[in-house]
Nucleic acid binder design. Structure first.
Lengths: 255, 255
DNA sequence: GATCTTAGTCGTCTGCCTGACGATAAACGC
DNA sequence: GCGTTTATCGTCAGGCAGACGACTAAGATC
């Protein structure tokens, strides 16, 4: 077979962009970096970078994630649309799954760039160092980043990508146990509830929530201790169980 | 701003591949084409092709779809992961949404190719003509294409892509009204039920199904006639209503 | 040390939805 | 007419979620 004629197809650059979500102080936050180079120099954007020749898409996303946050990724089913979380028992890894691909001709003024966005769900982390070509990095509440009146909207089409990632996270914690990816290895029912409340932006009944999560087989396993770090009566500590799919799902209240 | 230095990133080719699903004679079928050129010449594959410079990903998918089937696509929310169907009132267009992106380094022996797979749901169509560089085209039951004992498995990683697309379709008709995309503009409750049965590969209770779909506001609107094309008592004809999300969802029986 | 505040946990009740049917209706072929 | 096929309406029991009462156990405050 002869080598493929490179004039027969248009050349593209392929990047990965990351929507890294976490919950801190009762708000859903995303990782944003301040760009250190053109285009959109000095504007906030999602972390990301070019895919290298020898790596696949998930590896590129994991590499960028490690470079920006030091997080090891627990990959879901890779490119699989219904990316299920790999079984794990409370390591400090974050959940990583492919989100969607964005390739409009004008989205990057330099050249034709196709970006494969990935979604990362991580427990609360310290403020990241600015890595690589970024001038700064911060956790920003998604409501603020997506606010149409924000004087510093995200660069490129990253606002759209972030919105898609947030919507994916919101719907996915309904029918999977992925909300535990926002929690430390051991957590209480109340902490898990505050994750749902922050991601959905609603208040949930503590009693019904407790009944639901403790009554779903395989969702939570007791870790054997208690904590009072939230104040009030000591709460039992749990670890994420092996179950990945919630059936019946956790219902998101209407409006 | 100076033009971007093309030596600073590795060049990729970007393609779209299509998982085109339909229901014919009670079986979920996918469109397969016989390749007319290397690599994998004469093997069955999913339809697809290179993305052109001036078009976005959804446009490329719609163009390939038209070239292979003559179908006009009703695009969902494009790259949006929760691609919702555009509102429409019974045209002959098919549903199109982005599925996932596949970019392992060795997936195409010619060069580094990143493929943005799209999912198309279409009503029953005549056997397509072989378009472009294909030697042939056919509707094949997905169970047959994905059977590990099939002596003619799909080329490249198209088996994996097809499996992901089928799983997406199976889960999506649970909580959306997308099953109507498999039906002609006017259809009966029984025809819709046979779509669910073919996609899920299960038998559903006609009485409970009827109660569910007619009781969900906005799912179906009466078209004002009846038909006996399925034999038996005449059935009311319906059109797809405006609702896209089914809440509560249609439950897929276990096992 | 009594009391207040904050959370966590266990129960109860009611309404909605689903699954498993029975029964009836309206066409067709013989 | 009679059996067959498909559509459509009803009934009933069980499961689950929302609303909410009651009790428990820690730290904070007076």
């Amino acid at each position: 077979m002869s080598p493929y004629d490179p004039t027969a197809y248009p050349p593209f650059a392929v990047t990965v962009d990351l929507v890294v979500l976490t919950v801190r102080s009762h708000a859903l936050c995303a990782l944003a970096v301040r760009r250190g180079e053109a285009p959109h120099e000095d504007r906030w954007a999602l972390p990301g970078g070019f895919v290298r020749t020898e790596e696949n898409l998930a590896q590129a996303a994991a590499r960028e994630l490690a470079e920006e946050t030091g997080l090891r990724a627990q990959q879901g089913a890779g490119a699989s649309p219904a990316g299920t979380s790999a079984p794990y028992g409370g390591t400090s890894g974050a959940h990583l799954e492919q989100l969607a691909t964005y390739g409009d001709p004008g989205r990057d003024p330099r050249m034709r760039v196709v970006s494969v966005a990935h979604l990362v769900l991580a427990p609360d982390l310290p403020t990241p160092r600015a890595g690589g070509d970024a001038r700064g990095a911060r956790w920003a509440p998604v409501g603020e980043l997506l606010d149409a009146r924000n004087p510093e909207p995200l660069a490129f089409d990253h606002g759209r990508i972030l919105a898609d990632g947030v919507e994916r996270a919101r719907s996915k914690i309904e029918y999977s146990s992925l909300a535990t990816a926002f929690c430390p290895p051991e957590f209480t029912v109340g902490e898990l509830r505050r994750v749902y409340e922050a991601v959905w932006g609603v208040a949930l009944d503590p009693r019904n929530f407790h009944r639901k999560v403790t009554g779903t087989p395989g969702f939570l396993v007791p870790a054997g201790g208690t904590t009072t770090r939230q104040g009030g009566r000591p709460a039992q500590l749990f670890r994420a169980g092996g179950a990945t799919l919630l059936n019946p799902p956790m219902l998101r209240p209407e409006v």
